[in-house]
Design a protein around this nucleic acid. Sequence first.
DNA 1: CTATAAATTTCAAACGATTTCGTAAAAGAT
DNA 2: ATCTTTTACGAAATCGTTTGAAATTTATAG
Lengths: 337, 337
Amino acid sequence: MTTIKDISRACGVSPATVSKALNGYSEISKETVDLVRRTAKEMHYMPDAAARLLKTNISHNIGVLFEDGTMSGLTHEYFSLILNSVKKEAEKLGYDITFISRYIGGQEVSFLEHCRYRRCDGVVIACVDFESAPVIELVRSEVPIVTIDYTFDNISCILSDNIEGNRKLTSHLIEAGHRKIAFIHGEESSVTGKRLNGYYRALAEHGIPVREDYVLGARYHDPESSEKMTRKLLDLADPPTAIMYPDDFSYLGGITEIGRRGLSIPEDISVTGYDGIKLASVVHPALTTWHQDADEIGRRSVQKLVETIEHRKTSEAEQINVSGELLGGYSVRTREA
Amino acid sequence: MTTIKDISRACGVSPATVSKALNGYSEISKETVDLVRRTAKEMHYMPDAAARLLKTNISHNIGVLFEDGTMSGLTHEYFSLILNSVKKEAEKLGYDITFISRYIGGQEVSFLEHCRYRRCDGVVIACVDFESAPVIELVRSEVPIVTIDYTFDNISCILSDNIEGNRKLTSHLIEAGHRKIAFIHGEESSVTGKRLNGYYRALAEHGIPVREDYVLGARYHDPESSEKMTRKLLDLADPPTAIMYPDDFSYLGGITEIGRRGLSIPEDISVTGYDGIKLASVVHPALTTWHQDADEIGRRSVQKLVETIEHRKTSEAEQINVSGELLGGYSVRTREA
DNA sequence: CTATAAATTTCAAACGATTTCGTAAAAGAT
DNA sequence: ATCTTTTACGAAATCGTTTGAAATTTATAG
């Protein structure tokens, strides 16, 4: 590997000058800069991130803490999309991304220790148990953090508009003439709480009393679980005319149970999902759902994190709401009042 | 941050001794080792990966090159699963993983340059255009590489058994009494080639002549595209009795078109998918498909890569086949001969 | 008690870059 | 011609760790 010394030798200048020329210091003459840059290119010079980090204390590396997809209750594709967007934006802003795990050299350590070991400039946290001790330790450390879909004091977070989203989605059903609207929510979490909140609000705004037997819990991303809840709902003496599912994928469980009973969507029963992933538009019938703007969420997280990293003193913790949109499908039927 | 020097001061020994004690050199006395280890723990010492790398030339960092060229990338569940498994196994073996991109500090560079910049010990490549110049450059460099689902001379690769898989899947249909079996394959690639190969073999083994009008190309992960091909097939004067889709997700496009014609699966037409992702088991009817063992593929890639890294001289390039299994669903109907 | 071997520990030089401070030369001012 | 300023560059320290060789201490032998 060519180093700065090799170049300095080839150019007949000192390593210091090479470094400065390469990094655009103004004190180096135009000719020297040109010479150095040219030889660097010719010799296929690449700076060494480690050496640079050692001296500058900047790794240009941001950690991502995304708990593994299958174990997490939340929608797999939604987080994959966020991760992808995080990656793209990070690249654009000059950062690489590394997964933060609880291992170093095969030994178990805390997330924070891992971050320090790799000297991450900052960390994006999503899709984890935010109330677990190792996560809290990291959040409360000196490491710049941005969380997604969870709020901590004094920590910036990017929030998908779960309250608004579910409120609008519920309102959409109400405006289509539904009064008996069931909501199958996912397992307890702050996201779930917000969606419930939105659901209740929409009902309240339209003066529809809440029926507790229409509010059931299932597990995110688990069609079997939603299938079971759908069964419960349809077995009620007075079944709902619309069912809201925890996420798009869970809708598949709904389809199964609804189909089993010979009912059809949306003629006999209306349904909605949540997420707005590709699946929603290719199932039959296409699902009316709330699209969460995963791209924007990923982008904003990194932008905010980088801002925090690069202007640590002036940058303030901020809660950023990213709004989604209603994605109309063919799974909701308008009922006459 | 506590450094080795802080510990050396606290213990009254030299930094060298601390380093050796921490790294288990046998020449250090038991008492010193204990003392050093204890104080290191007390002072919350964490080694600095960068400094260590600088000296040892080992980053304990493996790069992953997972591109989302076709917009599938990370969102494609099969690859997400592989990535996840790669991550887990890497952690277990003491490596972190970093995404290899084509950017450093926002500037465009080659993959190889990025690897050198971060000094990746090795790279797992999957899901990219293996025939593009930047990928070839990386593969042909001195960096240890393992590829997934693509073969290069002298480079280890992990192969999902696409030939066998599709052969067995096709045979399964034949054994169920089908003779008119259409195969909608994905876009051209080595994987597609192998699956075609498996399809042809199965037909040949059973003495069934190939009907070229039953072999159509669609795009992976694109139900609309498969929907269109399904239409073509069903419009044939002599339509097939079974359709094999490029992947599980594409099956959804098939369902749409088949349903539109009032046909049902599997009574009127049998179908199969490929991948064996969760979706296959929760759609209706559950899909008969070939399950690719993404977990095993990820695991073996990292194992082989680490072997290559750690025993560079003795380790030989190897092609490892990971076999999958037929996942029975309810989408194939047995026909009387 | 030496002399020698064995067991510990320390020295000091790296690794590859950045950066502060100093200096020499060139340019500008008086 | 002298003094001041500016411009361009270099010397050397430093970041935190590792490692082979040298030095020191301790143990063993003669």
